[in-house]
Design a protein around this nucleic acid. Structure first.
Lengths: 135, 135
DNA sequence: TCCTAAATAATAATAGTTACTAAAATCATT
DNA sequence: AATGATTTTAGTAACTATTATTATTTAGGA
């Protein structure tokens, strides 16, 4: 499965993902990496993002609107989408909660459950502050 | 918001969604409704599915691979995707669990959390049986 | 340095979905 | 039942996100 060769482009993409918390889309990654590698192609970005997701070096987050987003943080955690600004935030509940949600689900399903993703919806601190200023 | 006029096509789509548990994609709905309304167009299906989702008469489920799926069951519940066959199943944990997951998340987030969706991954009973026969 | 496999940029192609428009259907009012 | 304002439709074009193709370049072991 892993006949991977080093590439500057992939290294730059991983580097970027690991140092941002904005959960960028492929296109956002593309626009960013482009500053250092002006001829990088969008296809290369997609291929490497999927590669990183396959090797567990990144996480792909499916959101209902807009394209998929990517996260360089790979420990088990969840995400909150702010309904106001659309930004995606990390949310950590702790492994014991994650496991208990899985087993709870397993008890209610005629089969096995081994993992899950949760997408929370709400309003981020920033947008709450903005709203309270208007009132 | 609601200047809705009746349409046979929308009624048929809702009827179908309410009587199936297969969580069809827009295309699957299209192929089905076509049997009764051979000239219905895919655009009409999409428009009505989104309309039903907007009015709360159906739920739109975003899955990582393939198109969105729709569910005529509108009470709060979750979904399990079988990794083997790709089918989507309903899973009910009960309102108290749903609320407690929301409030737990709220405690770990600098903002407010008002809802969430969970997508569980596992293996359905059918596929477990098939696997055990092979061994 | 040479060679092979992998990665790239550029482009074409695909999937899923939304937008547009003239014609048809709905439905309240006559 | 006919009128008319509004919505919905079918058909089609357009768009967005993503994957596939391919000739060229690059990585890295022998």
């Amino acid at each position: 499965m892993a006949n991977l060769k080093y590439s500057r482009q992939r290294a730059a993409i991983k580097e970027y993902l690991c140092h941002t918390t904005e959960h960028p889309t492929a296109d956002t990654v593309y626009l960013h990496i482009r500053e250092a590698y002006p001829n990088i192609s969008l296809g290369t970005v997609y291929r490497n993002l999927n590669l990183l997701a396959d090797t567990g070096e990144a996480i792909k987050i499916s959101t209902p609107d807009g394209g998929d987003r990517f996260d360089g943080r790979t420990d088990l955690h969840y995400h909150v989408i702010c309904r106001e600004c659309g930004r995606v935030f990390d949310l950590e509940l702790g492994e014991q909660h994650i496991r208990s949600i899985n087993s709870l689900a397993g008890q209610h399903f005629e089969g096995t459950v081994d993992s899950h993703t949760i997408l929370f919806y709400g309003t981020c601190k920033n947008c709450l502050d903005k709203k309270s200023k208007i009132r």
